[in-house]
Amino acid sequence: MRHFLLVTLLMVIIMAAEASKKKERGKEAKGGAAECADWKYGRCVPTSGDCGAGVREATCNDQTKKHKCKVPCNWKKDFGADCKYKFGRWAECDTSTGTKSRSGTLKKALFNADCQITIKVSKPCSPKTKTKPAKKGRGKEN
Results as ranks from 00 to 15, higher is better:
K30R: 05
F87I: 11
D94N: 06
T64K: 01
K23S: 05
K120R: 07
A33Y: 06
G54Q: 00
G80P: 00
K86I: 13
L106N: 13
R2L: 06
K123N: 08
K23R: 15
R138W: 07
S101G: 02
D62C: 02
E28H: 03
K68E: 07
H67S: 04
D114Y: 04
W75E: 14
K135D: 04
D94H: 14
C93G: 02
R89C: 02
T105N: 05
R43V: 09
E35I: 10
A16M: 11
A37L: 11
C73A: 06
K100A: 02
D38C: 14
D94K: 14
K123S: 14
M1K: 15
Q116G: 09
F87W: 13
A134Q: 15
G104D: 04
G31A: 09
K100S: 06
I117W: 12
T95Y: 15
D82Y: 01
C69H: 00
L110C: 08
A81M: 14
W90T: 02
A19L: 10
D62M: 06
C73E: 03
C51P: 00
T97S: 10
K68L: 14
C69P: 00
K100N: 07
E141H: 11
A17I: 11
S20N: 03
R25D: 07
K77Q: 05
K23Q: 06
S101N: 06
T95L: 14
S101C: 09
E18F: 13
G80E: 02
K66D: 13
S103L: 07
F4D: 15
K140D: 13
K65C: 01
D50S: 06
K21G: 14
K128T: 07
P124A: 09
A37Q: 07
A113T: 13
F79I: 10
K128L: 03
S101M: 08
A19E: 14
G26E: 09
C44V: 02
A33S: 13
S101Q: 06
L9K: 09
G139V: 04
K120V: 05
F111S: 01
S122I: 08
I117G: 12
K136L: 03
C36D: 02
W75F: 06
P127L: 12
K84F: 13
E141I: 08
P127Y: 04
S122D: 15
V71K: 00
C60I: 01
G139R: 15
C73Q: 01
V71W: 00
T99D: 15
S103T: 11
T97L: 13
E141Y: 04
S96G: 15
K140P: 10
Q63G: 08
E35M: 05
F111A: 04
K21V: 07
C44D: 00
K120D: 01
P127N: 09
Q116P: 15
L110M: 14
C51S: 10
K128H: 03
A34V: 04
E35T: 05
G80D: 01
D82N: 02
W39Q: 00
C93S: 07
I119P: 00
L6Y: 07
K135T: 08
T131Q: 04
L110D: 06
N112V: 05
D94Q: 10
A17Q: 07
R56D: 00
